[in-house]
Amino acid sequence: MEPAVDTQTAAPDRSLIKKLAPARKQLLACIQCGTCSGSCPNADAMDVSPRYLWRLLLTDNAEEIFKTRTFALCSTCYTCTLRCPRGLQITDAMSLLKQVAASENLPLYKRSIRFYQSFMESVRRHGRVREMEFMTLYFMSMKNPVIPLKFTPLGMRLMAKRKVSVEIPSKGTQKLDAMFRKAREIEEQS
């Protein structure tokens, strides 16, 4: 049983609350029915349920939202979005929370933030993701020698099949750099 959401002591972090506005807007019509929580394949692994997360969002409780790992455990299967009786774009709201966490570089989500950022960096440089470069960038950014070891067996199997090859990160042609910069510029303005 989850505790009732405390609406009185919510920390008024204004800049974070402003960043949460697009996600909040997606969930305004939430009736707290819990269909999303009941449909989520990862609910068991989450510290609070999606339903509870939406209540935190609607009460502007940014502090509590970014103590949970719930949105980082969304695997974008869209089952909740499909089943939501209010037709809310729940999966998109999960992604918006991931984006806020990434822009704030919050340590709790370091693993997924670095993973996504490393992927995007390889895409920015070459236009297409180079799987081994992306993983190398990810390992370098995590500065934790245990993580690469966990991926080594799979990497070796893929190399044996000649599906991937060892790749030293390179600058590439900066193929999509102009688009990346433009997107950042527009997002920083809004």
Binding site: P22, T76, S95, L96, K98, Q99, A102, S103, S112, I113, F115, Y116, Q117, F119, M120, V123, G127, R128, V129, K175, L176, M179, F180, A183, R184, I186, E187
Partner: peptide, 25 residues
Amino acid sequence: DDWTCCGATAAEGVSHLLSFALPAR
């Protein structure tokens, strides 16, 4: 011709606009 990455689930994790612009390209 000259196709590029769609952004996979990574773009969505970092930038809303890029998650649309990359496939749109």
